[in-house]
Amino acid sequence: MHEVVVTKSTRNAIEAAKKENRSLWRVSSTLFSNVASDAVMKPLGHFAKSPLAVNYPAMYAGEYFEKELSLINLKGMDGA
């Protein structure tokens, strides 16, 4: 799983490249990794004290991974 973030500066760079007839192709390097399934994920440090921390309950990394697979329909129908 990965996420691509497009910022305002990215949009500005795209518009500038279009105006200058430059290529819009990009090259990126991606690193995928997994943490131990039994590691507990939760907000840490000052994030734990944020009022928004209640939106991120502690959960095992394996549970999170299974939830994400379900959301994109990649988890098996038998729960495996």
Rank of each mutant, 00 (worst) to 15 (best):
M1I: 07
H2I: 12
E3D: 11
E3S: 11
V4Y: 14
V5K: 08
V5A: 12
V5L: 13
V6W: 05
T7W: 13
T7R: 13
T7V: 10
T10Q: 06
T10L: 09
T10Y: 04
T10E: 06
R11L: 15
R11H: 13
R11E: 12
N12M: 08
N12V: 09
A13D: 08
I14Y: 13
I14A: 11
I14C: 11
E15K: 15
E15F: 13
A16M: 04
A17K: 11
K18H: 07
K19P: 09
N21S: 14
R22D: 02
S23M: 04
S23N: 06
W25K: 11
W25T: 12
R26M: 12
S28A: 14
S28D: 10
S29Q: 04
S29K: 03
S29F: 05
S29A: 07
T30G: 09
L31W: 02
F32M: 07
S33Y: 07
S33I: 05
V35P: 02
A36P: 05
S37G: 07
S37Q: 01
D38V: 00
K42N: 10
P43K: 08
L44G: 09
G45A: 07
H46R: 14
F47P: 05
F47M: 13
F47H: 13
A48N: 04
A48L: 02
A48Q: 04
K49V: 13
S50C: 01
P51E: 03
P51G: 09
P51D: 07
V54C: 08
V54F: 06
N55P: 03
N55Y: 09
Y56H: 15
P57Y: 10
M59R: 10
Y60Q: 01
Y60W: 02
Y60G: 00
E63D: 14
E63S: 10
Y64V: 00
F65Q: 05
F65E: 01
E66N: 14
E66A: 10
E66C: 04
K67R: 14
E68N: 11
E68V: 09
E68P: 00
L69A: 02
L69G: 00
L69S: 01
L71R: 15
L71K: 14
I72K: 08
G76Q: 14
G76D: 09
G76Y: 10
G76N: 13
M77C: 14
M77Y: 15
D78H: 11
G79C: 15
A80S: 15
A80C: 15
A80V: 14
A80G: 15
A80W: 09
